[in-house]
Amino acid sequence: MQTIDLEAEGLRHLNATLHAQAENTNQTAWEVLNPRGSHAIACGLDAPIEVTVKGSTGYYCAGMNKQATVNVHGSAGPGVAENMMSGTVVIEGDASQYAGATGHGGTLVIKGNASSRCGISMKGIDIVVHGNVGHMSAFMAQSGNLVVCGDAGDALGDSIYEARLFVRGSVKSLGADCIEKDMRPEHLEILRDLLEKGGCDAKPEEFKRYGSARQLYNFNIDNAY
């Protein structure tokens, strides 16, 4: 286990060291001490390493992550795992706004609650939230899966494209073009898998599925003649 004290060694040193880890590194376990809400911790990683942050993080922790596993033993500030490509990010506490925004792949697990705009503009990422999500979650969500074991706030899935949303609790309101959809066996399968990956003991049958009514896909604009 390698340990980096962020307070003593600074952000540039931390990220440069983690970026320097090669594909086949055998120093796979890293621990970050004293994060104290710093921004951009462990962003841009691209190696199969496991980073544990001992405390809470500021904005954009694990931003654009590829391959790595990042565990935050605390809560995460805005934009955690934004634009993630692959790998796994696990937040033990709560996550602030825009968690997993525009993520293309990988898995983001939030053990507490997530704030507003969770999964905004998501493009393939899987997000599993053990608690609740705030308003405007999955806004313009393009693809991937958002699983919410608690409740969802206002305007869930507004202007959604092809992402799948699974919510166990209540949904305060659905956004434009977002509707409840049938839960077919293949969806239960997908959900079972996601719940297992996210370490939730909830049952797939307890969830409802939401997705796009696909009414906003074509505007029929410019009928100029």
Binding site: L11, N15, H39, G44, Y60, P78, G79, Y98
Partner: peptide, 20 residues
């Protein structure tokens, strides 16, 4: 999608600089 206002933008730029 993940920042609003100049204070957030400053942090977004920090992230982009760290990644590159």
């Amino acid at each position: 999608p993940d920042w609003t206002g100049p204070d957030d933008l400053e942090i977004k730029i920090l992230e982009l600089r760290e990644i590159t």
